[in-house]
Design a binder for these strands. Structure first.
Length: 562
RNA sequence: UGGGGCGUAGCCAAGUGGUAAGGCAACGGGUUUUGAUCCCGUGAUUCGCAGGUUCGAUCCCUGCCGCCCCAGCCA
């Protein structure tokens, strides 16, 4: 399974699902564990799906069992091959032990059809001619029982004939459905004669035009679980009400196994949405560049942003599985992203908002190669040589003309350290006609080469820099939360809280030469700024970097606090 | 006024009769050539509320309150 297992000082992961499995194994209810991850291919996977994936594949691995990736492809009107492909790529990337085998609910259409006839034969299912609207009226309400359909007592032979003609394509979409005959007065509305089959004349990505009737989720899911030998069918809380129907079908059909369904709460996160419908809307209306826009909470978006798969797994592992609904703070995931990157990412220097610095007492035309540590957390990462000369770029934010005492950076008369280079003191500030600072004039102390002071004097600030003569031009994209509200779902219109500054494009960035060697998929730390990776939009002439996540910034936090 | 769930610190949560784990966040302090990292320290007289049982209840009982889901021929 995954390279980093989720294991804390408290021992192995424990939750009510795993407790149930231990119990089932102990009392012989099951002798092996088989789970499944059953996405409907009607959208891309998001971090909420990752929770289910980590749970299902994680359990399979922990208990020496197996987990199937199964597409719940029972509604061709909404499903598409694009999603089938994308979902597989995402599951593979998550690296949770998927063996590459793919299952489809549609593989079982013939068996499911036979079972439908079986139910009809037992007098437990009937063909209903009621229209969708009429059926709604007959269903009753949350507080009032429903009424039996006038077609409820059709004879077995008539039902069989009608059902076969449904399959043969003799009727229009919506004209007839097959319903289970359970109880129109049930408090649980799912038991009020639920629809088992409906007519859908749309080509299916897998079965083409072989069928014009399709089983509903309820009729397909549990039976497919049984066919695949699933022992523990894990789903989210909204299916709790469906469990009695799940069990009813398993009991009334000659299925080869008796799978059991367990429900856990779905993941919610602050400042984003995890609803497939709303995410689809963001994509289709062009509020984001696509499903893999780095701001999206999709697996492909996280991947493009540079988030390591191990960080996603670690994040999910810290969540714990429960039945209580809650919203996890985005900060929790940010921590999980920084954690592995802090250990592994190579340090580099990049200036995002450049300000020219001229070191007046540094020899014109001289270039020095200075040795810089690649990762202070990892000695084996070694060092690199970085060119330094008279004119360099520094960060605009690192200069302030009238700086408060607590500002440990550049300001007229103040001395700071240029990382692994020299101490410099700001001597003059050059401005343009508009009064904007365009250049800093400084002097350096040759004795401080490498950044250490032989006389022991201290400086509070250490700045990153890039040699102007050697800099690589680049575009850098900064991302912040997609939504300003903590819970956009609660807003009357979720788009009203869409963050207009969620994407900030910086086109005049200056990178140290080594940054030309960053490979796709590699994440590096831009010192003092955050973690960054290359974006496929980049070209040889103009590389593009995405900010995966910023570094913690207690100074900015203190400033904001006042 | 039907059915199904859930309520433990700002957030995620463990604990299920013996006197409240852990993580994230926050806030102090130390180290530091990243205001990063790292290290140390600080939180619930209390477990939605009110009664009851008990020597003892977050855990058992009763009643209330709050929140979520269900009336697709979606999943």
């Amino acid at each position: 399974m995954s390279n980093d297992t989720i294991d804390t000082d408290n021992g192995p992961v424990r939750d009510f699902v795993r407790d149930q499995i231990h119990e089932d194994l102990a009392n012989g209810a099951v002798d092996s564990v088989v789970t499944r991850f059953p996405p409907e291919p009607n959208g891309y996977l998001h971090i909420g799906h990752a929770k289910s994936i980590c749970l299902n594949f994680g359990i399979a691995s922990e208990f020496g069992g197996h987990c199937n990736l199964r597409f719940d492809d029972t509604n061709p009107a909404k499903e598409d091959q694009e999603f089938i492909d994308a979902i597989q790529a995402d599951v593979k990337w998550l690296d949770v032990g998927w063996d590459g085998e793919v299952r489809y609910a549609s593989e079982n259409f013939e068996q499911l059809y036979d079972w439908a006839e079986h139910l009809i034969g037992k007098g437990k299912a009937y063909v209903d001619d009621l229209s969708a609207g009429e059926m709604r009226d007959y269903r009753g309400t949350l507080t009032e029982p429903g009424k039996n359909s006038p077609y409820r007592d059709r004879k077995v032979d008539e039902n069989l004939d009608l059902f076969r003609r449904m399959r043969a394509g003799e009727f229009e979409d919506g004209e007839r459905v097959l319903r289970a005959k359970i109880d129109m007065a049930a408090g649980n509305i799912n038991l009020r004669d639920p629809v088992l089959y409906r007519i859908v004349s749309a080509p299916h990505p897998r079965t083409g035009d072989a069928w014009c009737i399709y089983p509903t989720y309820d009729f397909a899911h549990g039976q497919t679980d049984a066919i695949e030998g699933i022992t523990h069918s894990l789903c989210t809380l909204e299916f709790e009400d469906h469990r009695p129907l799940y069990d009813w079908l398993i009991e009334n059909l000659p299925v080869p196994a008796q799978p059991r369904q367990y429900e856990f709460s779905r993941l919610n996160m602050t400042h984003t949405i995890l609803s497939k419908r709303l995410l689809t809307q963001l994509v289709e209306e062009g509020h984001v560049s696509g499903w893999d826009d780095p701001r999206m909470p999709t697996v492909s978006g996280l991947r493009r942003r540079g988030v390591p798969a191990s960080a996603v797994r670690d994040f999910i592992g810290r969540l714990a599985i429960s039945k209580s609904e809650g919203t996890v703070e985005a900060a929790m995931m940010e921590h999980c992203i920084r954690d592995p990157l802090n250990d592994r990412a190579l340090r580099r220097m990049a200036v995002l908002r450049p300000l020219k610095m001229v070191i007046e007492n540094y020899p014109d035309g001289q270039v020095e190669e200075l040795e810089v540590t690649n990762n202070p957390r990892d000695e084996t990462a070694g060092t690199r040589m970085v060119p330094f000369c008279r004119e360099i770029w520094v960060e605009r934010d690192d200069f302030m003309e009238d700086a408060p005492k607590k500002f440990f950076r550049l300001s007229p008369g103040r001395e700071v350290r240029l990382r692994s280079a020299y101490f410099v003191t700001c001597t003059d500030v050059i401005k343009n006609g508009a009064g904007e600072v365009t250049e800093l004039r400084c002097t350096y102390d040759p004795e401080t080469r490498g950044g250490a002071s032989p006389d022991g004097r201290k400086v509070k600030g250490t700045l990153h820099w890039v040699s102007a003569a050697h800099a690589i031009d680049a575009e850098v994209r900064l991302y912040s939360p997609l939504f300003q509200d903590e819970n956009p779902d609660a807003a009357e219109d979720f788009l009203s809280t869409f963050n207009p500054d969620s994407l900030e494009v910086l086109t005049d960035c200056k990178l140290e030469p080594m940054l030309a060697d960053v490979t796709d998929g590699q994440v590096v730390q831009f010192e003092r700024l955050g973690y960054f990776c290359t974006d496929p939009d980049g070209t040889a002439d103009m590389p593009v970097f995405n900010r995966t996540v910023g570094l913690r910034d207690s100074f900015a936090k203190a400033m904001a606090r006042g």
